[in-house]
Design a protein around this nucleic acid. Sequence first.
DNA 1: TTAAAGTCTATAGTAACTATAGAGTCAATA
DNA 2: TATTGACTCTATAGTTACTATAGACTTTAA
Lengths: 136, 136
Amino acid sequence: MIKIGELAKISGCSVQTIRHYEKEQLLSAKLRSDGNFRLYDHADIERLLFIKHCRSLDLSLAEIRQLLTLHHSPMSQCDDVNQMIEQHIEQVERRIAELTLLNKQLKALRRSCTSKRTVEHCGILKQLNKAVSQSN
Amino acid sequence: MIKIGELAKISGCSVQTIRHYEKEQLLSAKLRSDGNFRLYDHADIERLLFIKHCRSLDLSLAEIRQLLTLHHSPMSQCDDVNQMIEQHIEQVERRIAELTLLNKQLKALRRSCTSKRTVEHCGILKQLNKAVSQSN
DNA sequence: TTAAAGTCTATAGTAACTATAGAGTCAATA
DNA sequence: TATTGACTCTATAGTTACTATAGACTTTAA
């Protein structure tokens, strides 16, 4: 059995993050030491690494909680897992599209001012203002 | 002079958002009615639309505050504005790269399970676990 | 005059942590 | 054995940009 600091080292998560996951019901220490320190075993390490891998895929804690539940209900259908991943992919793709558009706009903005003028003549601010008066 | 509800309509921001911007020192009503209602003029409308446009470019409230300050300091240099936009572009591009990688990983994961099996044999969960035991 | 709609302030909630305070525990050294 | 330093505990507040509520007050129109 290991204490939270060692679990943090092994997993690469911070101590606070592990405690946060416990609060969010993703991971719990089944045992405590005499002095009330959390004690973890090998299964906990695996569970935390699973969580960490899911987080690296930007799954939310709620989604991970769901996956962990499915994981331990052998009769449930893969479809639920598939659907979650599918929705997540769509979400990521929407965000990529948004950011790509944003990037274009920012680059157009950047082109509007390059020299060392005072703000009075700054093309960027002029552009930002122009957009304002247009939409007004 | 208009009240906050009308400013909200004109700008497309919610009433709470406008009050939030005031709290964040981006926009303030210089006048209040006898009954303590905020009163706005044309300059306030323009300022709010400027803020809204910047937000649509994902600039943070802190960045916008800085832009507004520069905006009203005619002696400051464009360089400050340029640098901020430059950094923002870099940040957006980093995030796009991250999400693109993420998307690839999620799609690989999706390919690992397609049929209606029970979770016991779910390829996605197997993949997620495999990653865990590899990194352990 | 009264009712509805609008506005006020203050506070809490959102997501996933991070950081702190103040107290208690553990392991090793003097 | 005492003490020091490192570790852990709980509880709470802060981060970002809002959104949503509660309870009270103001304005407007019928």
